[in-house]
């Protein structure tokens, strides 16, 4: 499985310099391969999230294409793309992304029950929660969780689906060192098991786990 971005770019209209077209992400190529962990560093506002969303099928690029193997991601209609994202791409977003009316365990299982409504066991959901030290919080609701716990919950949710592509946007942002290590190890493991992993982060610790390293500066990607 190879995720390939071909000259993708995103711009908004806002006064910047002499042009009022403002590139959040300038024309960029990148390739994420199965089994490899890519780390993308960059300052706040440099366009990392925008870039990640374009790779994950959440934001249509203004130019270029995103391919997964031979499939043009944005050539699919909404139903197809949604289903594709559900079944092949795991996304860990910035911010808190819990569904308030569901328990922690149900939140983690949510992507797996979206299609087909299969009601079989908890699968990997319980396992990941246990690994992240949240076994006792399975029945709790998101409103009862700390920021770090919510983050680990959303990481468990992305991992539990065993996605082929995993896109993590500052997954360790609000975690302590111990938990950061725990999460980075888990992401590394996922890559070793064949997932193409992209980690967007500020923290240089993550570089230790990386196979590929990229830097983003004002929308421009460099090695």
């Amino acid at each position: 499985m190879i995720l390939r971005a071909e000259k993708i770019a995103k711009w908004y209209y806002r006064k910047s310099g002499e042009s009022n077209r403002f590139f959040t992400v300038s024309e960029t190529d990148i390739q994420l391969e199965s089994g490899s962990l890519t780390v993308l560093m960059g300052r706040s506002g440099s366009g990392k999230t925008t870039f990640l969303h374009m790779l994950g099928g959440l934001l249509i690029p203004d130019a270029g294409k995103v391919w997964v193997d031979d499939k043009d991601l944005y050539a699919m209609n909404d139903a197809e793309l949604s289903r594709y994202r559900n079944q092949h791409i795991g996304i860990i977003s910035q911010g808190h992304t819990a569904v308030q009316s569901l328990s922690v365990l149900e939140n983690v299982m949510l992507p797996q029950v979206m299609y087909g409504d299969k009601d079989g066991g908890t699968g990997l959901a319980g396992e990941w929660l246990t690994r992240f030290g949240m076994q006792d919080l399975q029945e709790a609701f998101p409103s009862e969780l700390s920021g770090g716990e919510l983050r680990r919950m959303s990481i468990a949710r992305a991992l539990a689906g065993k996605p082929e592509i995993l896109l993590a946007d500052e997954p360790t942002g609000d975690l302590d060192d111990e938990n950061t290590q725990l999460v980075m190890k888990a992401l590394r493991e996922a890559a070793d098991e064949g997932t193409a992993v992209l980690v967007v982060t500020h923290e240089s610790d993550a570089l230790d786990y990386a196979d590929q390293r990229w830097q983003m500066n004002a929308g421009v990607l460099t090695k």
């Binding site: 909404d78 949604s82 994202r85 559900n86 977003s93 808190h96 979206m114 949710r157």
Partner: peptide, 16 residues
Amino acid sequence: RLEFAVLRMLGASRRM
């Protein structure tokens, strides 16, 4: 809105 966006991120189609 955030919750709806999360559902979209996790793969819910507009229709769902």
